[in-house]
């Protein structure tokens, strides 16, 4: 893939005309931009660098950061593993109840996270639907790291599935058919044609899932509880910290912002370079 852009000279008149509309556009776009930008800026201004350095050594901060990175990584991996077949099915097959399944997948994104937490308890809790069987199998999910991952997966996986479905649906079927005519097996077609062409959508969806999982709070505190080092992820530590140690909360908030900004920035850079059409 080449990324060299032919340096064409843009006609000046057209540029001028575009500038006029760009200026108007900027003025119209500024309120939204400022609204999103100012609170983040205020957060950064409140957190002095000395306070950051002092609290970075705090073991609670380190534990929360580590746990968040570990659980969100597993969550994203699981979303990729189990979300991809579902997305492919939704994109490529029409079946009875297709719209229903599609709509059901939207629900975790709409539900208040606290409700998601309660729902998870009702399903996997000790007295939940599957509770007796899980207990019989010797599995205790609530208050464990598995519960943290499940809470994140429930709330965040739909972002990946939605994006991947769109990605698979947009792949030009003629290319796949051409490969099939040349004798490629379905798996080869999927691996060498469908996957690369849907790649940006899958990648973007996975990043959205990761980001949503990183910020997950409501479902986690209800389903997994809050135990430092075991189930206390960054958002939980930030919320509890807000109760007393505002500085710890601010430190974690800035770290969370930094991480998210860094990863999203890198990902967007990669996307632009690797998949020029995005």
């Amino acid at each position: 893939m080449q990324t060299t852009l032919p340096q064409q000279i843009v006609p000046r008149l057209a540029l001028w005309q575009k500038h006029g509309s760009t200026l108007t556009l900027i003025v119209l776009a500024l309120p939204m931009l400022c609204f999103v930008f100012l609170p983040l800026l205020a957060l950064l201004l409140r957190a002095s660098s000395t306070m950051l350095l002092k609290n970075l050594g705090n073991s609670a901060v380190g534990q929360a950061v580590g746990l968040s990175l570990l659980t969100t990584f597993i969550t994203t991996l699981l979303a990729l593993l189990f979300g991809t077949p579902l997305a492919y099915l939704l994109a490529r097959r029409r079946f009875c109840g297709h719209t229903l399944v599609d709509t059901l997948l939207d629900l975790p994104m709409v539900l208040p996270p606290a409700v998601a937490g309660i729902a998870l308890l009702m399903a996997f809790g000790r007295r939940g639907l599957l509770g007796p069987y899980l207990t019989y199998a010797g599995l205790e999910i609530a208050f464990s790291q598995a519960a943290v991952v499940m809470a994140q997966l429930f709330v965040a996986a739909p972002f990946y599935v939605k994006s991947a479905t769109m990605g698979f649906a947009q792949v030009n079927r003629e290319i796949e058919q051409a490969a099939a005519l040349d004798g490629a097996t379905p798996w080869r077609i999927f691996r060498l044609i469908t996957l690369p062409l849907a790649g940006p959508a899958l990648f973007g969806g996975a990043v959205m899932t990761w980001a949503r999982a990183l910020g997950e709070f409501g479902a986690t505190i209800i389903f997994a509880g809050n135990f430092p080092g075991r189930t206390q992820t960054m958002p939980l530590a930030i919320y509890i910290g807000f109760e007393l140690e505002l500085n710890v909360a601010l430190t974690l908030a800035v770290i969370l912002l930094g991480f998210s900004f860094g990863v999203l920035g890198v990902v967007k850079g990669v996307l632009r370079r690797e998949f020029v059409e995005l």
């Binding site: 208050f143 505190i221 209800i222 509880g225 809050n226 135990f227 189930t231 919320y239 109760e243």
Partner: peptide, 14 residues
């Protein structure tokens, strides 16, 4: 202790 809750209601609900 399995969880340090942030609200009384949270602890009671569990």
């Amino acid at each position: 202790v399995v969880s340090y809750e942030n609200t009384v209601k949270g602890a009671l609900t569990k």
